[in-house]
Design a protein around this nucleic acid. Structure first.
Lengths: 258, 258
DNA sequence: CGTTACCTTGATATCGTTCAAGTACCGTGG
DNA sequence: CCACGGTACTTGAACGATATCAAGGTAACG
C-alpha cells in the first residue's frame, strides 16, 4: 500500500488523476509481486515481455560488455517505471536487477497500448516520466564525459537525494542508499578504489559523508553549486499544489495546435 | 520534400500510417523553416516553446558546464524529433544547435497534446522514437563509462552509419559527417588531441578512415564485433515489410491488458 | 599572401586504474 | 566465547590512458 502511494506521489507532481484515470492506474498496479535482492527483471537483448512499476525497494538498469565491465545506466527508485518501452521495442535495451527486496507491480505491454488509446492524459504522464529519465541520462552523460570524479559522486547523490525526497524517502540531507562501492563505481564510470578515495575527499571537504549505506549530505547548497546540479527535470519549478497539466486538455489547445 | 520522406522512412520502421494519421502528420510538418549552421534551437534551462522535426541537415543536443566544458548528448539526424518533451517539461533539459544548414518543421507543444488525445497509434510511435533515443543515450553512457577511446570512436560511427542508412543517407560504409574533431571529442568525453590520435590508430588497424568530413568504415563486421555494437534499438530485427505495430490496435490486446 | 579554421605531432603532466596487502565487520559453526 | 571465512572497504605503490601544453602544418578563403 505504501508503495502505491509513492507512485501517486510522484505522478502528482505532473497531474492529478481523475476518478477514471485513478481506476485505470489502480488496475495497472493490481498484479503485485515481491522479489528478493539481486533478482534479474530484464536481460539486455532478450525479449521484453512485461513492464513494471517499482513500488518499494531499489533497482538498477545496466549494460555489460563481454569483458565483464559494466555500466549502470540509472538507479530505479520507488514510483518509477521499469521497461515501459516493452510495447514498442522487442528486445530489452538494458538489463534490470533489484538491489534490495522489492515490491513490483507487473503489467503487460498491452496495458500501455490501452492507456494510449483510452487515457490521453496518462499517456502525457508517461511521456513526462520518460522525458525525466532521459534528462537523468543526459546529466549522467555530462558527468561521465566532463566532470572529475569528485563532482560525479557529489552530483549523483544530490540527484538521488532529490528524487527520494519527492517520494517521501529522504529529508534533512540523510538517506539510506543500498549501493556498495562497486555499484557506485559502475554507475559513475570509475574504479571502486577511486570511489573509495573520492568519498574520503568529500568527507574531508565536509560535503558528503558515507557510513555503510547511510549517506549524509553535509552541505547541500555547496554541493549543488560545486557540481552544478540543475534540478529542472525534477519538476521543482512547479509550485506546490499546482501541476503542469490541468484537467482536461483545454479546448484552446486543441483548436489549432500546429 | 525529400526531408519529409526521411521522416516517413524512419517512422515506417515502426508503423504504416493510416490516411487519417498521414493527414495529421502532414499538418505537423507544414510549418517549415530553413536555418543556418551553428544556429541555436533550444537553450538548456530556458523555456521550451516549440518542438521540431529535423527534415534535413545535422544538429546536436548538448549540455555545458560553467567551466566551458561541454558534452554532446546525441547527434540529431534527418527524421528525428527535437525537443518533443516541450509539452510536459517547462525548461529544456539540454541545448540544441544545428551543425549544418537545416530544414526544420516546427510545431507547438499543443500539437503533441492533440496527437495524444486523437491519434493513439502515433502516440505509440512517439514513445517508440523516445525509447530509441534513450537506447542511444544508454549505449553512449556505456561507452563513456567503460570503453577505451578507440572503441568509443568506432562504436559512435557504426551507430551513425546505421542510423543514416535507415533514412537513406549512407550506404556501402561511407558517409559525410559534418563533425570536426572538437564535436567528436565533446560527444565521446575525450580531448580533441586524443581523438586525432585515435583516428590514426583506427586507420592503421584498417577499421575506419576519416578524410575531412568523409567517414569510411573499412571493415564494418570487424568494427561491430570489436565495439560490441548491438543494433537492437534500431529496429533491425523487424523483417522488411513488417512493422512492429499493426493497424489498428487489436481487440484482443484491449480486452484484458493488465 | 596573410589569416583563420582545422588538424597533427611531440613532450610532459595528471587523473584514475590496477595490483596487492591489510583492516573492519559480521554471521556461522564449534 | 572464539575461530573462521566472507564481504566490504581502505591504503600504498606502480602504472597507464588520456589530458594539457606547445609548436607546426595544411588548406581554404578573402
Amino acid at each position: 500500500m505504501a508503495g502505491e502511494e509513492r507512485f501517486f506521489q510522484k505522478l502528482n507532481a505532473f497531474l492529478e488523476p481523475s476518478p477514471k484515470e485513478l481506476a485505470f492506474l489502480t488496475q495497472l498496479l493490481k498484479r503485485q509481486r515481491q522479489c528478493a535482492a539481486n533478482e534479474t527483471l530484464l536481460v539486455q537483448g532478450e525479449s521484453h515481455p512485461a513492464s513494471f512499476v517499482l513500488l518499494d525497494g531499489w533497482a538498477v538498469r545496466h549494460k555489460a560488455l563481454a569483458s565483464g565491465r559494466r555500466q549502470i545506466l540509472n538507479v530505479i527508485l520507488p514510483g518509477d517505471f521499469i521497461g515501459l518501452e516493452a510495447h514498442v521495442i522487442a528486445q530489452a535495451p538494458a538489463s534490470a536487477t533489484t538491489l534490495t527486496a522489492c515490491t513490483l507491480a507487473e503489467f503487460r505491454p498491452a496495458a500501455t497500448i490501452r492507456m494510449l488509446a483510452e487515457q490521453p492524459r496518462l499517456a502525457a504522464a508517461v511521456l513526462w516520466a520518460t522525458a525525466r529519465e532521459e534528462a537523468f541520462l543526459g546529466e549522467r552523460l555530462l558527468s561521465l564525459g566532463r566532470r572529475p570524479a569528485i563532482d560525479r559522486v557529489g552530483n549523483f547523490f544530490v540527484e538521488i537525494y532529490h528524487r527520494l525526497r519527492l517520494v517521501g524517502l529522504a529529508d534533512g540531507g540523510t538517506f539510506v542508499a543500498p549501493l556498495n562501492l562497486d555499484h557506485i563505481a559502475d554507475a559513475l564510470g570509475l574504479s571502486m578504489v577511486h570511489v573509495s578515495r573520492t568519498f574520503g575527499r568529500l568527507r574531508h571537504a565536509k560535503l558528503l559523508l558515507r557510513r555503510g549505506q547511510s549517506i549524509s549530505i553535509l552541505d547541500l547548497p555547496a554541493l549543488e553549486k560545486r557540481t552544478e546540479f540543475d534540478g529542472l527535470y525534477l519538476g521543482r519549478r512547479i509550485p506546490v499544489g499546482e501541476r503542469y497539466l490541468r484537467a482536461p486538455f483545454s479546448a484552446d489547445d486543441l483548436k489549432d495546435p500546429f
